[in-house]
Design a protein around this nucleic acid. Structure first.
Length: 469
DNA sequence: CGGATAATAT
DNA sequence: TATATTATCC
């Protein structure tokens, strides 16, 4: 294999030869998957012991592109394996399980799995796995931009959190942020000159953030207000406002993340039902809308809860699987270089509207009628409300642990934060935020968000696969 | 304090 | 330009 140098041409051989490591204690399953992978033209390596799988991975760090692992295994829990892989190498891991338990799936996803497949695995599901590899590779490229100028500009550094690193703490990084916003009490000096910047914006490096979290946890959710946090953090130059702003941003991010998790599920359902495909390949803007509430709160509440009441009637029978039905139309006739189902962004509009007043800036343009929850998108520029938020950065780590997280923060400190969203939408990576906005704002079409007969699917294989026609 | 929006940075 | 992050305002 080997690709030619990065010319623009799409190497039509990329997906082929993908090196997949499959770990599953069930020999039958293992064999089947292996077979299917081969049919897909992938290079499969199988093993029935998690430990062995891990050993294989360690042996040649670059020997595989992606890992497919079962969840339940005698010698080592699939999550454990996942953990090790996440810690030691940068490989996309897909979890598999016959158990469609939502929380289990959630656990897999939050622990770093890039996907969670419900067995039985169908070949259609395997065809697409290359996307995960591709996506990760792409992300890495974007992240490691060569902008790292060694200059000692005391500005700020580009602290891109490598997707797999989360908040790896670097002990001696304690002073890095200091120079980033050295400000002291001297207000007279500098301001304009001073070597570089004029306005030292605080840069929340992972280290700084860590300190923040530490303080937050130490204080306890009830008293964790900016003032207290500031005090405990004891960082020269940092102001209460800085904390407040960060606090706000953090909680917003948290809810955004939950949203993203939700998205994962949708993606799965999508992929899983895509075999019946054959829609016209005309559009690639997948917009998905959910009626009902989408409390920016906890994902658990959303998934397990009674949200989505609107589509309730669509669910006949098994109530185990939540919103799987309100999916929409998928396309992607093939497993080719289309990206449907992978990169996506989610936005949610607030229930109400019309707050766009702003302080009489000179914008001149009209205000958007829709308001987005702060952080998840609230930037009015050029008269438009532009949604935005960063899904990828600053997601705090330690899933498993029961440390206090910002979810707690969210739940406690802002019960009435913003109104629950009435819908949300998703677009794939070709969609811009604006597209999304459009999707959201679009008048609730008939059948939007509901199962559409016209498209030939009224059920999802997820449940009826096991044999219940 | 908490939340929204303006301002910057990338 | 569009989006992300932080500063300000109320």
């Amino acid at each position: 294999m080997s690709n030619s140098a990065g010319s623009g041409s799409v190497s039509d051989e990329f997906p082929a030869g993908l090196r997949v490591l499959v770990v599953d204690d069930d020999p039958v399953c293992l064999m089947i998957i292996e077979k299917m992978l081969k049919i897909c033209n992938y290079q499969a390596t199988v093993c029935n012991k998690a430990r062995i799988g891990l050993a294989l991975l360690r042996e040649n760090k670059n020997g595989f592109d992606i890992v497919l692992s079962d969840v339940h295994m005698p010698d080592m829990d699939g999550f454990k394996l996942l953990e090790h892989i996440g810690l030691e190498m940068d490989l996309p891991v897909i979890m598999m399980s016959a158990d469609d338990n939502q929380s289990l799936a959630m656990k897999g996803l939050t622990h770093g799995a890039c996907y969670y497949m419900i067995k039985p695995i169908r070949i259609d599901m395997l065809r697409n796995i290359w996307q995960h590899v591709y996506r990760r590779k792409k992300k890495k490229l974007n992240g490691s931009d060569p902008l790292t100028s060694p200059d000692d500009v005391n500005h700020h550094q580009k602290v891109q959190v490598p997707e797999d690193a989360y908040y790896a703490s670097s002990e001696n990084g304690a002073h890095k942020w200091k120079n980033a916003k050295r400000r002291k009490d001297y207000e007279d000096e500098s301001d304009e000159r001073e070597s570089s910047s004029k306005k030292p914006r605080v840069v929340w490096t992972p280290e700084l953030h860590r300190r923040f979290v530490e303080a937050f946890q130490h204080i306890g959710i009830d008293k964790a207000v900016p003032k207290n946090i500031l005090e405990l953090m004891n960082v020269p130059g940092l102001t209460r406002e800085n904390i407040a702003s960060h606090l706000q941003a953090s909680s917003d991010r948290e809810s955004a993340i939950n949203l993203q998790d939700l998205l994962h599920f949708h993606e799965q359902r999508l992929n899983e039902s895509q075999f019946m495909g054959t829609m016209d390949p005309g559009y690639d803007l997948r917009a998905l809308s959910v009626r009902g509430q989408l409390p920016g709160q906890s994902l658990a509440a959303v998934l397990g809860g009674s949200s989505f009441s609107r589509s309730q009637h669509l669910l006949h029978g098994s109530s185990t699987n939540m919103e799987s039905r309100q999916l929409l139309r998928l396309q992607q006739p093939y497993d080719h270089h289309s990206f449907t189902g992978v990169n996506s962004q989610v936005y949610m509009p607030m229930a109400g509207h019309g707050q766009g007043q702003s302080q009489g800036q000179g914008q001149g343009q009209g205000q958007s009628q829709h308001v987005f929850p702060n952080g998840i998108g609230s930037n009015v520029s050029g008269g438009r409300t532009v949604p935005s938020f960063n899904l990828l950065n600053q997601i705090r780590p330690d899933s498993g642990s029961q440390n206090m997280t910002f979810s707690d923060l969210l739940a406690h400190s802002s019960p009435k934060k913003t109104e629950p969203a009435t819908s949300f939408a998703v677009v794939d990576e070709t969609g811009t935020q604006d597209d999304l906005l459009t999707a959201i704002l679009e008048p609730p079409q008939e059948g939007f968000g509901q199962v559409e007969d016209e498209f030939g699917f009224d059920g999802y294989d997820l449940d009826d696969l096991p044999g219940s026609p």
